[in-house]
Nucleic acid binder design. Structure first.
Lengths: 230, 230
DNA sequence: CCTCAGAAATTGGTTGACCATTTTTACACG
DNA sequence: CGTGTAAAAATGGTCAACCAATTTCTGAGG
C-alpha cells in the first residue's frame, strides 16, 4: 500500500510535464488530488528526497531536482553513496577499465551524429576550462555521453554508477601547481583519439583509445608528485 | 540533520552485532537511546524499509532483512526496480555479456579455494534442483559468487545490479514441458566449464567459457518454442 | 501439571492540531 | 508613484495523543 502511493506520485509528476526546478503543488493540495492522506504523501516525498529527486524547504515549497540524462528520475544516489563507502580508488578505476572500453566499442556502432557533435563540443570546452573543477565536470559529461551513445540504457546506468562512485572516492591531487589543466594535459589528446575512433565508426580503435586513456589516468594516479587528476 | 540520524542508526546497527532476521529494539526505546525524536527515527526507518533493508510489523517489532553477500546493507533495491522499468530483456543480456566474461577472467586470478569449493557445491545443487525456480535461485548465487570472487566490490555490486535487473525483466519460457531442468540442460556443462577454468586459474579460458554460456543462454531466449530459461 | 480463554502490556501506525519559516499582501508614509 | 514595514497567508515540519495488531501474562478449569 505504501509503494502504491510512490508509484502514483511518480506517475502524476511525469504526466504533469514539470521539469527541473519546477515547483510541485503544496502537500495539502496534492494529497487530496491523489486521494491519499498528507502523511502518506509525505512518506513518499521522504524516500524521493533521500534519493535526491526533489528538495523541500519550509515556506517555499517542494521542487523537482535534476532531470538527468536518462530522463526518468532514477534514484541511485543512495546506491552510489553506499558503494562509495566500501570501494577503494583502485577498485573504482579497475571497474572502469572493465566496462568503459567495451562501452566505447559499442558507441562506435550506435552513436548518432548529434551525439558525436555533442562530444566534439565537450572536447573543445574542456580545452577552454578555466578551473580543474570545471574540467572535471566536462570530463564527466564526456564519458557519460559516450555511455549514453552505446545505446544500452542499463549499461549506461551502470557506467554512471561506477563513474559517480569514482568521483566520490578518488582523491584529487592537491599539489598541482596549475589552477587549470595545462594546454599539454595528456587527456586532451586522448579524448580526441577516442572521439576520432567513434567518428570513424571503428570499434576496435575506440576500445583501444579508451583503454589507453584509462591506463594513462591510472598511471597519473599512481605516480606521485606530478600532473593532474584524470 | 536528517541524513545524520540515518548514519547514526546504521552505525548503531552495525555495532550492535545484530544479524539477519534479528529484532531491533522498539522505536520508543531506540529513539531515546540515540537521542532523537521518535518521528525522526521513523523517518530513517522509512527509507531503510524502502530499500528493503528491514521489515516492520505492528505488535511484533522491527527486523533486519537479508545481510547479503557484501555484508554492508547496500540499499540498491530502488535502483534495481527503477532500472528494470526502462530496460529491455535484450539490453539486460547485452549488459551481462559486456561485464561477466571479464569478471570471470578476474575471478580466475582472485578466487579463494573456499570460493571455488562453494561454486562446486552450487553446481552440484543445480543438477539436483527439483524445480525451475529453485534452479534459478542457485544459478543466481553461482554467478554472484563468481562476481564476488573477482575481488572488486564495486564490480561485484555492478554485476549484482545487472543480474537482478535481468531477473525482473527477462521472461521465463512458460511453455516448457519439464517441471525441472532436464539432466541434459545446456547450462550444466557450461557452468562446469566455467568452474574448471577458474580452478585451473586460466583467465582466458574462464572468459571464453562465460562468453559461451551467455551466448548459449541468449540463443535459448531468442529461439522460439524450445528449451528453458537460462 | 497442562490448557486455554481473556485481560494486560507491547509495539508499529495514524491522525489532527500546532509550530517555524518564507512569501505575499496591505497600507501608511514620503 | 515608489518604498518600506508589518500583518496575513501559505507551506513544510513537528509532536503528542490515540489506534490497531500482536505478544505476553494471568488464572480458572480440568
Amino acid at each position: 500500500m505504501d509503494d502504491q502511493v510512490l508509484i502514483r506520485l511518480q506517475n502524476w509528476v511525469t504526466n504533469s510535464g514539470l521539469g527541473e526546478g519546477d515547483r510541485l503543488p503544496p502537500e495539502r493540495t496534492l494529497c487530496t488530488e491523489l486521494g491519499v492522506s498528507r502523511a502518506d504523501l509525505r512518506k513518499a516525498y521522504l524516500v524521493l528526497e533521500a534519493d535526491g529527486q526533489l528538495t523541500r524547504s519550509v515556506g517555499r515549497g517542494t521542487f523537482l531536482a535534476k532531470p538527468k540524462r536518462p530522463q526518468r528520475g532514477d534514484g541511485m544516489k543512495r546506491t552510489i553513496m553506499s558503494l562509495a563507502e566500501t570501494t577503494s580508488p583502485l577498485e573504482a578505476m579497475n571497474a572502469r577499465m572493465v566496462v568503459e572500453p567495451q562501452i566505447a566499442q559499442l558507441a562506435a556502432m550506435h552513436a548518432t551524429p548529434k551525439q558525436l557533435q555533442e562530444l566534439a563540443r565537450l572536447s573543445d570546452q574542456m580545452r577552454d576550462a578555466t578551473s580543474w573543477s570545471r574540467y572535471e565536470e566536462l570530463d564527466r559529461d564526456f564519458h557519460e555521453m559516450i555511455a549514453e551513445a552505446a545505446g544500452n540504457s542499463l549499461l549506461g546506468a551502470v557506467h554512471k554508477i561506477i563513474n559517480r562512485v569514482r568521483l566520490v572516492v578518488v582523491w584529487r591531487k592537491l599539489d598541482t601547481t596549475d589552477q587549470r589543466p595545462p594546454a599539454t594535459y595528456h587527456s586532451f589528446a586522448e579524448h580526441d583519439a577516442i572521439l576520432a575512433a567513434l567518428q570513424a565508426r571503428n570499434g576496435e580503435q575506440a576500445y583501444a583509445a579508451m583503454q589507453a586513456h584509462l591506463d594513462s589516468t591510472l598511471a597519473m594516479m599512481t605516480a606521485p608528485r606530478t600532473g593532474g587528476f584524470q
